[in-house]
Design a binder for these strands. Sequence first.
DNA 1: GCGGCTCGGATTGCATACTGTATTTTCCTC
DNA 2: GAGGAAAATACAGTATGCAATCCGAGCCGC
Lengths: 233, 233
Amino acid sequence: MAGTLDKGEGLVRNASLAATELIREAILDGRLQPGQRLKEEDLARQLGISRTPVREALLMLQVEGLIVATPNRGATVRVHTPDDLDDLYGLRALLEGHAARRAGVRINEEQVAELRESCDRFDALEPEDELRELVRENMFFHNTILEVAGSARLGSMVRRVIELPLVYKSYIWYSPDQKRISSHYHRQIVNALASGDAERAELIMKEHVFEARDLLVARLRAEESAAPAEAHA
Amino acid sequence: MAGTLDKGEGLVRNASLAATELIREAILDGRLQPGQRLKEEDLARQLGISRTPVREALLMLQVEGLIVATPNRGATVRVHTPDDLDDLYGLRALLEGHAARRAGVRINEEQVAELRESCDRFDALEPEDELRELVRENMFFHNTILEVAGSARLGSMVRRVIELPLVYKSYIWYSPDQKRISSHYHRQIVNALASGDAERAELIMKEHVFEARDLLVARLRAEESAAPAEAHA
DNA sequence: GCGGCTCGGATTGCATACTGTATTTTCCTC
DNA sequence: GAGGAAAATACAGTATGCAATCCGAGCCGC
């Protein structure tokens, strides 16, 4: 019972959904590492439920793309190659750029203010602050734009595409330098949105995502060539 | 046992996947109508399996967006409003346009030939032919371009977005006039791809999708105002 | 000594039984 | 006869047991 996934919280409307969220969280913050095998019985024991809801959770996470499962052989946390992430970020740029453009023709004063406040909070976070806070504020910014874009489907697609790569060392995006650059892009996007320049908002958003991609992919490729094909202990 | 979903075929590698495909098919060709309630036990009986794999199938279809489920109250076939489909086709245009552009810089001679053959087969189909054949050939064309685009993720996203609206009267797209127009666009897309003009391929693909959207949405809005909020017998 | 084979353990796939909840029906009260 | 409470019913949610499958370890034959 060393590393339990449960948090002892109550308020569980439904075991399957609870399991989904707990496992997803565990994957996203690295407690379950890429490539790791996910045995139904183990998870069930750790979560204090039976295998049935665990199976349903794994199924959903599989459709979401967070894990891969092969028939009769169970599931493992998905391993993303640099090429894979490159591809993913190409899609994210397309979709989130589109969202920014839509937001540009729909945004109102209040929403502009909300985005500006998010930028201020982002800037106020000090380097020594928890990485988690930076990630959160960043997500809030991007989510707000998705909401303003006003397409539920687009929103869910983007979120799905954003979520996955959070697994991978998000700290690389928030060095003091990178944090300043991100902040700059965020403010430029808000300015474009505020002045109704939808095309420019799309442009900046795309570049913002592309730079995130470049940073991540370069890092992963470097690690890959440094320690090629390490065995899983 | 009136309307069984099963086809008596063997070759079932896995009950859950088989159930998923059978139910999906039944939804797509209208045997299960939008809004219809999907009771686990009924489906299980019709498919000759237990509730467990049926639940898994419903779960996957839910994540795919073909059905909606509310806790403790089961699932129904998803009902799409015209606004909803409008939104969906906006995304499809974006994604499939992107795919066409990518295809433009990756396509080879052989693939061009394959697309041209698809166009020929499409033209050869007579109006009195089965609608199903037209739908199939059209899907083949679009799928081929997705494959050429070379992004698995993009492909699966587009397919997910294409699949849903097949529920809705696909015949409206294949009147003799519309069939000619579709064929024209398909050939124009192939020409653009063949000459390496990726941007133009994207453009035409987008317009092609937009026209499909307009046709569908106009039709649905007309039906809606003609017979508003009909009760489900 | 090495390759193929068989057997055993481990783990997923499926079915069934039970539990909890939401809805409908029924009966009682006013 | 109408409104509301309580029981009954129907169904989704969960647990558990058994069957099917897969992988590896040990054994036998060559």
